[in-house]
Amino acid sequence: MPRKQALVLIVEDDAFVAMDAADSVSCAGAEAVTAESVTDAIGILEREDVSAAILDFHVRDGTVTPVIERLRERHIPYRVVSGSPVAELAAKGVPLDLCARKPADYLAIVGSLVGIGSGRSLPPLG
């Protein structure tokens, strides 16, 4: 049965931040699925029809670059929300215009991904 709502993958190893992001996704009218690790996120991508993703850069088992590669292959929009230095994100090939600094406005991020919610643009990392 086709999904009626957008499904947003949240990859975040801090439970409170993941809950905040999931709540914002829900408030925007989408469904959230969470993962605490790269391994779990890749498993979800293989099983679910994910519409978009919100990723912390560093999670329990490393950086999310393998997840980003799979998202790019499938043309799934994503945003990276991180406290990591901008230079580190850029060095790993993450486009800085797809990044936001923690703490983040997750409702704005969801809106920028799937055209729902507030739809405000992301604040610059600078």
Results as ranks from 00 to 15, higher is better:
R74G: 09
P77F: 01
G62F: 13
E12P: 01
L98M: 05
D97W: 09
R70C: 02
L98K: 05
C99F: 09
R60Y: 14
V81F: 01
T34H: 06
V33S: 07
L71N: 02
T65G: 12
D56W: 05
R72Y: 08
T34Q: 02
P77R: 03
A90M: 08
R70I: 11
D97I: 11
E36W: 04
P77I: 02
P85A: 11
R60D: 15
E12V: 04
A53P: 05
V81T: 02
V11S: 00
A90Q: 10
R70P: 01
G93M: 07
D105Y: 09
D14P: 01
P123L: 09
L89W: 00
A18W: 00
P77W: 05
D105K: 11
S112R: 08
A22L: 01
L55W: 00
A30K: 04
L122Y: 02
V64K: 00
P123D: 03
G117V: 06
V94G: 01
S121F: 07
D14F: 11
L107E: 12
D61S: 15
R74C: 11
V17Y: 10
I10L: 13
P85I: 10
E46L: 06
F16A: 12
Y78I: 09
G111Y: 07
L89A: 09
V38C: 07
I10C: 12
L45C: 14
V33Y: 03
R60P: 03
P85T: 06
A15C: 09
L89V: 03
A91F: 12
A41V: 05
G119M: 10
E12Q: 03
A22T: 01
A15Q: 10
A91V: 15
V81D: 00
D56R: 00
V86A: 15
V38D: 02
S26Y: 08
P95W: 03
C99K: 08
V86T: 13
A108F: 02
V64T: 15
K92M: 09
E73P: 03
V86P: 04
A18G: 04
V17G: 13
P103L: 04
V80G: 06
R47G: 15
V94F: 00
D40H: 11
I76N: 09
G29F: 13
A108V: 01
E69D: 10
A100M: 12
D105H: 14
